[in-house]
Design a protein around this nucleic acid. Structure first.
Lengths: 204, 204
DNA sequence: AACAGTAGTAATCAATTGATTACTCATCAG
DNA sequence: CTGATGAGTAATCAATTGATTACTACTGTT
């Protein structure tokens, strides 16, 4: 999947590696994602991946921060567009849609989930907790949701995240699977699924 | 943490390895959990871990099946005790409590979450989807919940799972963290937290 | 006592992996 | 043209890891 480019500026290459790492870490998790696979995905040498970020740990940290940062930005962008006329239900829908668009990038979705599973880790654990809380604070304090509304919103979001991580839409001809997806994700399911189809998975 | 026992029957040792593997895989995920760490946790040689289960992949598969199997059994046990007099809200509380008790075993909780993150995997993906759907079918068909009730129940469950995986209760003196935990987990939080404190984590 | 079956390990291996080093090649200012 | 800076890599390393093999030792049976 490497589009055989020539020399890039350091910054461009950096972005490219971060994108590649998001895909690979998403696919195989932190421990399972090798710097070699990331290098191949980006079309450069493994040595350069390590060199640019110092270490694999550092790289995953940056990938995680990208993902959580995008989430914060997306929510703040939506909230900035609030007119003050919507009900909180409509606001939930708007924010939910923003989340859906973000995690239509499967790498981002999975990287977030893997990060949440690293709560034990001395480095990633605190990072994960702080990022999660940051987003909660945004929804609670900036979007003006009550604790109950915010909790419900997050609960639905986490279920959707896991259903997508599971590739539940791949289960065909199962009425219960369809029902669960419809009930939890509604019409967003098709949109996100379509974008998944178009996405590169890790080669080998 | 290995309680220096003598010879055990094959079956007893098997159980012990599965328990150790649940802790290790929970802590470090599938790729990150080494057969060596599992062996040390169980107090036996690495060779024997591999030998008893054929491969690490197989071992994780069995660990996953244990976890999802326990979940199914717990729910069915609760449902069998339904009198027919409860409202569905009370039933949600009863099932929620059962889930809480199950994932008070942190290894089980984390193993489930890691499994869900492996939806891409050709071996674990189908397993994960099928297990998840099984539980949904139980809640839907055997507990008699509507699609909406079941979805809400699962959403809350997934949020709780992630909050615990994140070790969110470790965040002290943060009103928003406390609020989120209270709102999502209610009084269960303390119970589960207490059991976490008592649990062995992976040594090194 | 001798045998058989089973629990368990030490030693070892090939493969993988993150990291380092020394280098090549391109680009561009003067 | 020249020299310097920065992009990028080949080669290599030490450590880790899952797996295999050949072996030891315990246990119960006849």
């Amino acid at each position: 999947m490497s589009t055989a480019e020539g020399r890039l500026t350091s910054d461009d290459r950096r972005e490219q590696i971060l994108a590649a790492a998001t895909v690979v870490f998403g696919d195989r998790g932190y421990a399972g994602g090798t710097t070699d696979a990331i290098a191949k995905q980006a079309g450069i040498s493994q040595a350069y991946v390590v060199r640019m970020f110092g270490s694999k740990e550092n790289l995953f940290l940056e990938v995680s921060r990208r993902a959580t940062g995008r989430l914060r930005d997306a929510f703040r962008g939506i909230i900035a567009g609030f007119t003050g006329e919507e009900g909180n239900l409509e606001r939930q829908v708007l924010l939910g849609r923003a989340y859906g668009e973000l995690v239509a990038d499967r790498g981002t979705l999975l990287t977030l989930l893997h990060l949440f599973g690293l709560g034990q880790d001395p480095v990633f654990g605190p990072e994960a907790r702080e990022s999660f809380l940051d987003v909660y604070r945004i929804v609670r304090d900036e979007a003006g949701f009550s604790a109950e509304e915010a909790t419900q919103f997050f609960a639905r979001g986490m279920l959707n995240t896991i259903l997508l991580a599971l590739r539940m839409p791949d289960v065909k001809d199962d009425p219960r699977a369809f029902e669960l997806l419809s009930s939890s994700m509604g019409e967003q399911c098709e949109t996100i699924l379509a974008s998944f189809e178009a996405q590169a998975s890790v080669a080998g």
